[in-house]
């Protein structure tokens, strides 16, 4: 029996991860399913502010990181939409902006606990090229680890970082031993320094100036993408069908693959842990041999992950696609197995 093992909610793990990442302040506005992150952070006694809306929360985070403070916010659904304003500034100015998104059903106010419909918004929600790091945890442990990583990558590489989770994971309790997890922190630094003068634009007079900035950011993005992009891959060596899912649906698919294997179906498992940058090489490499005949993308959306997979997969790879899509609904192991067996 390990005494360090605790039984914690997902939102408690997020707050603990932010503390352990040495985050100094949270700005936020209450919205389900992320309210407990805000109240949980406030309960730690660390600096915080419940702002008048998510727009103010987003820009307060921008201001804080400009001054060199590790800051973050959390939201979902309509609040996530409003945060795109600040996130867009963070993308334009390369600010280490960290947000934990608890996806809820959409469009509009939708439902309040669960969905996987904020993938496009998280990845490409700004008026730019989508140069933001997006992590999709499948388990409570990963929720903790990826929140830590979001701070580290944001401050090391200076791109906004989004931990894209959902209310199921945030409101679920699981046993975890945090003492086992060793992650070193990347320290914060002043972006507007005290000892010299900075003149920092984010709007340009000439199209060429903006184009140059975008190209520079894209070059950095392309360089950091291979080390950051990550996937969980199982049972692919002889697989004939490849099941692709992300986030908590990925956890169900992983279990489904285990059971399908037991009944002799050659199923493989691919779960992007980072949606941006997408683990493209890892996916393409699975097609070096010609065992894989079909990809099945499984998600709680009408195809937001599928769009990314189709776009990222090398165009010369000829493979059939099928989809199990349940927008706004959770997906259980049994229905995944039934779907595979009936297709």
């Amino acid at each position: 029996m390990n005494n360090n093992r605790k039984f914690l909610y997902g939102h408690e793990l997020v707050v603990q991860a932010c503390l352990d990442a040495e985050a100094e302040v949270m700005y936020g506005y209450p919205i389900t399913p992320t309210c407990e992150i805000l109240s949980g952070w406030i309960a730690t006694g660390k600096p915080s502010l419940q702002t008048e809306d998510e727009i103010a929360a987003g820009f307060a985070v921008c201001g804080a990181v400009l001054a060199g403070q590790k800051a973050f916010t959390a939201s979902g659904g309509p609040g996530h939409i409003l945060l795109q304003d600040g996130m867009s500034m963070a993308e334009g100015m390369r600010l280490p902006f960290v947000i934990i998104v608890g996806q809820r059903g959409g469009p509009s106010s939708g439902t309040v606990i669960y969905s996987q419909q904020e993938v496009m918004l998280a990845c490409f929600g700004g008026n730019g090229e989508g140069l933001r790091l997006v992590y999709s945890p499948a388990t409570s442990r990963e929720l903790y680890e990826l929140t830590r990583q979001a701070f580290n990558d944001a401050w090391q590489y200076r791109f906004p970082a989004i931990v894209l989770t959902d209310g199921y994971l945030l409101k679920m309790r699981s046993g975890i031993n945090l003492a086992e997890i060793k992650i070193e922190n990347v320290p914060a630094h002043q972006l507007v320094p005290e000892d010299k003068i900075v003149h920092w634009p984010n709007i340009y007079t000439m199209e060429e100036e903006l184009n140059e900035q975008i190209n520079l950011a894209q070059k950095d993005w392309d360089e950091i993408s291979p080390p950051i992009a990550k996937a969980e891959i199982l049972e692919t060596a002889d697989a004939e069908i490849l099941l692709i899912a992300h986030g908590i649906v990925g956890a169900a698919v992983k279990e489904a693959v285990k059971q399908l294997r037991k009944s002799g179906i050659k199923a493989g498992y691919f779960r992007p842990i980072t949606l941006r940058p997408f683990p493209k090489k890892d996916l393409d490499n699975l097609f070096m041999k010609d065992n894989l005949k079909k990809i099945i993308v499984i998600e709680s959306s009408s195809g937001q992950l599928a769009r990314i997979v189709r776009e990222q997969l090398a165009p010369e790879i000829a493979v059939g696609f099928e989809y199990l899509q349940k927008p706004g609904l959770g997906i259980e192991v049994e229905e995944i197995i039934d779907f595979i067996k009936n297709n």
Partner: peptide
């Protein structure tokens, strides 16, 4: 530094608090 239209007040608030 420049911010966004209508957003300089919350940005400077975040800066000042930091």
């Amino acid at each position: 530094f420049q911010t966004h239209h209508g957003r300089v007040v919350p940005t400077m608030m975040g800066f000042k608090r930091a």
